[in-house]
């Protein structure tokens, strides 16, 4: 069975494109359009990895991350951030993100980083 990735991204179009890319590479996908939605979905059916956008409505990526780690979840999280948000990257890693990818991203980089955390 394919590994399941939750894409938490409020830009619906980007989420759709990510789904196409990931499915073509053998992953199963689900999407969440805001932070609260992401947390609910993770609780209901823990995915093998979360691709987490930083800037999202309701709860942003940091809040999602904090809440996940506080409740003991060890699900691998890769942050999606804009370049030159170094402070955001540092903050994210401190909060327990496993890795990050900057937007716009290269497909190869995306898949390599995901493969590293989905075992």
């Amino acid at each position: 069975m394919g590994k399941r990735i939750l894409i938490a991204e409020d830009e619906e179009q980007l989420a759709r494109l990510l789904e196409i890319r990931l499915r073509a590479n053998g992953y199963e996908t689900a999407t969440a359009s805001d932070g609260e939605d992401a947390l609910q979905q993770i609780a209901a059916q823990p995915p093998d990895l979360v691709l987490l956008d930083v800037m999202m409505p309701k709860a942003d990526g940091f809040e999602v991350l904090r809440s996940l780690r506080e409740t003991g979840s060890t699900v691998p999280v890769i942050l999606l951030t804009a370049r030159s948000q170094e402070s955001a990257v540092v903050q994210g890693l401190q909060l327990g993100a496993n890795d990050y990818i900057t937007k716009p991203f290269s497909p190869v980089e995306l898949l390599t980083r995901i493969a590293k955390w989905v075992k």
Partner: peptide
């Protein structure tokens, strides 16, 4: 500034990924 940065890069990311696909 961070907000503008996000707003500029998101459509670029979408365009790029759509073309790449």
């Amino acid at each position: 500034l961070a907000l503008v940065s996000h707003e500029l890069r998101t459509p670029l990311a979408i365009l790029q990924e759509a073309v790449n696909l």
